[in-house]
Each structure stands twice: as C-alpha cells, then as structure tokens.
C-alpha cells in the first residue's frame, strides 16, 4: 500500500461512497429486487400490454424526434452564439439555460397556455388544423423545449475551440464554403453533436413535468411512459410500476453509456489538436 501524499483520501472517498450507496444505489437495488421478483416472462408480458406499449412508443419515438429537432436547432443557435457578434448576444446566451432553470411544471403550464386552442399561438394554429396542446404534437413541443440547451451547451466549447485558421487553411487550399463545412468542420463537430443529441434524448425520454400538462394524457394516444408509472403507483400496482420503471432505467443506462463512449471519442480530436 503506497502512502498518499495529500490527506483525506479515506474520509472523502468513504463518505462519497457511503452517500452514493445510500442515496442512489440502495434505492436502485430496491427497484432491481422488485423487478427480479417479477421474473422475465411476466416482465415482458406486462410491458407488452397495449397501453404500456403505446406509452413506451410515444416516449421513445417522441424523444427521438425531439432530440433530432434539438440537434438541428442547437447547432444553429450554438453556431450563431459562438461565431457572430450582434447586440443582445450575451442575453441570448444566458437565455439558453432557461429550460434548465425553469421548473418543469411551470414550463408545462406555460406551454399549455400558449398552445391551447384559445392560447396566444393555439388560436392561430388551430384553424389550420394544427392541434398541438392535448395531442401527441404537444408532447413533442415540450420535449424539444427541455432538451434544447443540452445540444447548445455541449457544442459551444467545441465550436469555440475550432480555430478559424483551420478554415482559412481549407480556403487557401481551394475548398468552397460548403466543402470546408462538410470536410473540415463537420467531422470535428459530429461526435459532440451526437453527445448533445444523446443527452437531449435521455432527458426527453424521462421527462414528466413539462409534458403531462400539454399532452392531454389520452390513453393509447398521448400518454407517456413516466405518467403511466405514476398512475400505476396511484393504483398501488407496484409490480407494473416496477416493470415499466426497470425497462426505462435500462434504456437510461444504455444512453449514459453511449454518452460516455461518445465523449471519449470526441476527446480524440482534442488530443490531436493539443
């Protein structure tokens, strides 16, 4: 055993592990224990119930679409914030974090008020047959809202580190603007963009507060998986809740793993640059 030079190793690591164990691992173990008591056959059976299946489909499908939209919007906003100087840029930059800072319930009722048939936006959209509040489209809007900052905040440092001399070099070598973007900028940005996408996806899949107000929560139609868990708990159906919870937790863990791998991949470029 090598002696540690700085003090507090045992204390800090011991405390951190004990705390994590009590707050995170023990409760998750309770979920795993409950799920294992159900058994794999029964678990699949529970998940295959039509209402559950519809909820899972909406949660994952909606999250996927929302994360894609976040990727595009986040790239645009991140690019504009890093590359261009215009009045109000700082304010705009601060505002990006609003979906992080605004409590989800507040975001939920605000979006609902906007897109409801008599709301500021709903009253213009409804006559054109665009029903957003109390429909699957509303779920999507809320998911885009909560996931959008992830992409911007992940991209910004990488965009800032992209030295413009690399682009200038590409230009002097005869590349067009589009070629420079596709061949020089995009390859460096891609892993980071994917990381932001995965983070937004993970957030959207599990999102609850901002979605339930705008969704209308019609079974089979606009009901998300986390809401189903809450309803099962209210009906004391702990088995069903645990089954659905386990399935969602596993997907979250997979997404976390994907993010970790993506971040390792994107760091590859950082090393090349240094």
């Amino acid at each position: 055993m090598r002696r540690r030079i700085l003090p507090g190793f045992g204390l800090s690591l011991g405390y951190a592990l004990a705390y994590l164990g009590l707050v995170v691992l023990l409760p998750l173990a309770a979920l795993a224990w409950k799920a294992s008591a159900i058994g794999p056959g029964q678990l699949l059976h529970l998940l295959a119930a039509p209402r559950t299946l519809a909820a899972l489909k909406l949660s994952f499908g909606g999250a996927l679409l929302a994360a894609l939209a976040d990727g595009a919007i986040g790239l645009l906003v991140g690019w504009v914030l890093v590359r261009y100087r215009f009045p109000g840029r700082r304010l705009l930059d601060a505002l990006v974090d609003l979906p992080f800072a605004l409590p989800t319930a507040v975001a939920g009722i605000a979006l609902t008020a906007l897109y409801a048939p008599n709301g500021w936006l709903g009253r213009w959209l409804e006559p054109h047959g665009l029903k957003i509040a109390y429909a699957p489209a509303g779920v999507l809007v809320a998911m885009v809202f909560v996931g959008f900052p992830f992409v911007v905040r992940t991209l910004q440092p990488v965009l800032e580190s992209l030295e413009s001399d690399v682009e200038e070099a590409a230009t002097t070598l005869g590349a067009t603007r589009a070629q420079t973007f596709l061949r020089v900028i995009a390859p460096v940005l891609l892993p980071t963009l994917l990381t932001g996408f995965a983070l937004a996806l993970a957030r959207a899949v599990g999102e609850y507060g901002s979605v339930i107000f705008i969704a209308g929560n019609l079974p089979m139609k606009s009901e998300i998986a986390p809401l189903l868990i809450v309803q099962q708990l209210e009906e004391f159906d702990y088995t069903g809740a645990a089954a659905l919870g386990t399935a969602m937790l596993l997907v979250s863990l997979l997404l976390l793993l994907a993010v970790t791998l993506l971040q390792r991949w994107s760091r590859r470029w950082a090393e090349v640059r240094a």
């Binding site: 409760p27 998750l28 309770a30 979920l31 993970a202 899949v205 599990g206 999102e207 609850y208 507060g209 986390p226 809401l227 868990i229 809450v230 708990l233 809740a241 645990a242 919870g245 969602m248 937790l249 979250s252 863990l253 997404l255 976390l256 993010v259």
Partner: peptide
C-alpha cells in the same frame, strides 16, 4: 441526471 425523475421517486 440520466434517470427519469419519476423513477427517482419510484425507487
């Protein structure tokens, strides 16, 4: 951060 808040309550 990657666990749904509902699951945080559920556990």
């Amino acid at each position: 951060f990657s666990v749904s808040p509902v699951i945080a309550g559920l556990v």
